[in-house]
Design a protein around this nucleic acid. Structure first.
Lengths: 301, 301
DNA sequence: CAAAAACCATAAGCTTGGCCTATGGAGTTG
DNA sequence: CAACTCCATAGGCCAAGCTTATGGTTTTTG
């Protein structure tokens, strides 16, 4: 039994006459009549008795009607679902990002995405990079945004921008007079920065060596945002990525670090998993949002 | 989405490769490949990523897989059901009959039917004729067997035989010497027979008048089988249809009534309801069983 | 009571779906 | 590197599904 035959049968059962059923399905009466006759021929038993030019359901028709109706409705539902999928009107996009892009880029990307596709569920996971990789592998997220492009081979990293470092000064710190700081300015000061053996810590150490200075981070952090509290408490100067919108936090002065290393901003996807259309649209939005955020930063600097 | 596309999609999801799926569906690999490609084209999004010659389901495919599988299974189930209906391997046949045919004809008809169609449920309702008509009208039974052919116009009655009357004698009654009785033999005796204003009572009275005798039923019954107890108790001679297998009851002697009226045996159907194939097969069995029973009676007589 | 309306079926013709066999290209493996 | 496996394409066939045109029945209506 083909899907069309099912629809025709259900329509005739509901409408009572072939003509009305044809109207319901927006096809001609002979077309529907043919399908119905052909269906009966294939089934091997009649579905309707023709009596005085009218149709009367046979017991067999009554017997299969309930199933036919259920299946027909199910097919309709699936068709609706697929058109929704085609138009990107349904689905769930999960993005895992480390905190700086999660706070700086995703809000903008999600806003633009939501404006275009109001019916797609969005989920943002703020996680350290190792967790992001795990989520991408497991399919718990289809997109990742991190500040590292050195990743396992099964993770594809597309660099969509880069940012330098920012120095977070306690509100009344002397260095706030300068609009830009260099590594040399920080020598001998209490520094709050990334723990050793991480990408940014290595890059910072390398840059310092290149510039002939020695830095001594006295407080190591894991995620840049956790520096906020320590800086506010006056425990030192935060030396962190410039991406996170630090100006949102009170009690901080933010200054660019000149001649420092750059963080790549990478869009991560699993090589073993395909992106849905919705994912791809979100990826575009993230690229755009990243570019927009970076250009704003450049203007401000 | 056509049913075939659904099946192909499910098969590919389950099999993992186009080739294996084609084997599952017993079609050629190119045929399945085409259907899959065409389906993706119609849907507007890809269901599988082709990577290194292999297929990998897209998130969209995963999203609709559950529904597709459910629907595909449902279609399979419906197809099985329809072939069962065609072959008469499923269904329910309900027959309403008055007690004499229910006891004399239906056992034989049901036995033959069951031998041919062991999977069809059978239901026998023993009921007075008015109830049979109601059941046929309501669809609670599709076939009826009664000993009357004068029925409302919406009930079709096909006479499939006729039987005369039988006289039920208490075990030691004097009349048992005769192999056949006439109405004249019964004059003046205590009779147990149908209540007035019923078809058989009228016919009996008419026959008696025609033969110039007067009968005086002293105990009126509704259904012939209820005569058994009264006859066994010696309350009189039962004058009832010859159809019911009276010889099954102990303490009775059965003698044919010669020159008495005949009961029609009628097969009843509703004119407003169609018969299922199973109903029609049962109707044939009832006709055959009736003929067989009547010929046995004739041999015995 | 006859004309109009409603209903179903058939006929002829077209487009597309679904299937085949044959073949080729791409990737994996012994 | 050759054999194997996998998927896609090409060309051809038949049946499904749709159209318009038309005719036969039965019911409704003026």
């Amino acid at each position: 039994m083909r899907a069309r035959q099912l629809e025709v049968f259900v329509a005739v059962m509901r409408a009572g006459t072939v003509t009305a059923a044809a109207r319901m399905l927006n096809i001609s009466q002979p077309a529907l009549s043919q399908i119905l006759l052909h269906t009966e021929d294939e089934l091997g038993f009649t579905l309707f008795e023709r009596v005085k030019g009218r149709l009367r359901p046979t017991p067999e028709a009554l017997e299969i009607f309930a199933d036919a109706e259920r299946l027909s409705a199910g097919l309709d539902g699936l068709r609706r679902k697929t058109t929704d999928l085609r138009l990107g009107r349904t689905g769930l996009v999960r993005v895992a990002a480390s905190p700086p892009p999660a706070m700086a880029i995703l809000p903008r990307a999600f806003t633009a995405f939501r404006a275009q596709h109001p019916d797609i569920l969005l989920r943002s996971h703020s996680a350290p990079i190792a967790a992001i990789v795990d989520m991408l592998r497991a399919g718990d997220a289809s997109l990742g945004v991190a500040m590292d492009d050195r990743l396992p081979p099964d993770i594809e990293a597309e660099v969509i921008g880069s940012v330098g470092f920012a120095c977070l000064l306690p509100a009344e710190h002397a260095l706030r007079r300068k609009t830009e700081l260099t590594l040399a300015d920080l020598v001998g000061l209490e520094l709050i920065s990334y723990r050793g053996n991480t990408r940014p810590a290595d890059e910072l150490a390398h840059a310092a060596r290149a510039q002939g200075v020695t830095l001594s981070p006295s407080l190591e952090i894991d995620v840049s945002i956790s520096a906020v509290g320590f800086v506010q408490a006056g425990m030192g100067i935060g030396l962190v990525d410039a991406l996170l919108p630090w100006h949102q936090f009170a009690g901080l002065a933010v200054r660019r670090l000149a001649n420092g290393p750059e963080f790549p901003i990478a869009l991560l996807t699993s090589r073993t998993r395909a992106l849905s259309l919705a994912d791809e649209m979100m990826r575009d939005q993230i690229r755009a949002a990243c570019a927009a955020v970076l250009s704003e930063y450049r203007v401000r600097a």
